[in-house]
C-alpha cells in the first residue's frame, strides 16, 4: 500500500544538454534578466494559488525551460492565474509574472 507523505516525487529525467536548443532561453533572459537569478528554492511553487488545485509546478516549468525542454510548457503555464503571490515570496527578487507572460509569448511565437 502506498503511503501518502503529502507530496510526490518527480520522474527521473535525462537531458542531453549537448542537443538542447537554448534560443528561447536567451530570448527570455534578454527581456527579463532577473530570470537568471533563480536558485530553484521552490518558494514560488509552495505558495502558488493554482498549485493548490492542480498539479502545477512553476519552479519545474522554469527549470525545464532553462534546459530547453519546451514541449507542453505552454499548456502548463496556461494554468497560472497571474495572482502574483510567487513574485512576492521569491527570495531572489525574480519578477515572476512577466517571466510567466513572456515564456507564454515566446512559446507561441515560432
Amino acid at each position: 500500500m502506498a503511503i501518502s507523505f503529502g507530496f510526490t516525487i518527480s520522474q527521473t529525467r535525462v537531458v542531453n544538454m549537448d542537443n538542447c536548443d537554448f534560443g528561447k532561453l536567451h530570448q527570455l533572459e534578454r527581456i527579463t534578466p532577473s530570470f537568471k537569478k533563480c536558485m530553484n528554492c521552490g518558494a514560488c511553487t509552495a505558495t502558488c494559488s493554482a498549485q493548490q488545485f492542480v498539479s502545477f509546478n512553476i519552479r519545474k516549468v522554469k527549470s525545464l525551460y532553462t534546459m530547453g525542454q519546451l514541449g507542453g510548457l505552454d499548456k502548463e503555464l496556461a494554468k497560472c492565474m497571474l495572482c502574483g503571490k510567487c513574485t512576492l515570496v521569491c527570495p531572489r527578487g525574480l519578477n515572476l509574472r512577466p517571466i510567466i507572460m513572456n515564456m507564454r509569448k515566446l512559446l507561441t511565437t515560432k
Partner: peptide, 16 residues
C-alpha cells in the same frame, strides 16, 4: 480558507 481562485483582476490588468 485553504484554496483561492484568484478574482481575475491581475489578469484583467495585463490584458487577458
Amino acid at each position: 480558507e485553504d484554496k483561492t481562485i484568484c478574482c481575475g483582476r491581475p489578469l484583467m490588468q495585463q490584458g487577458y
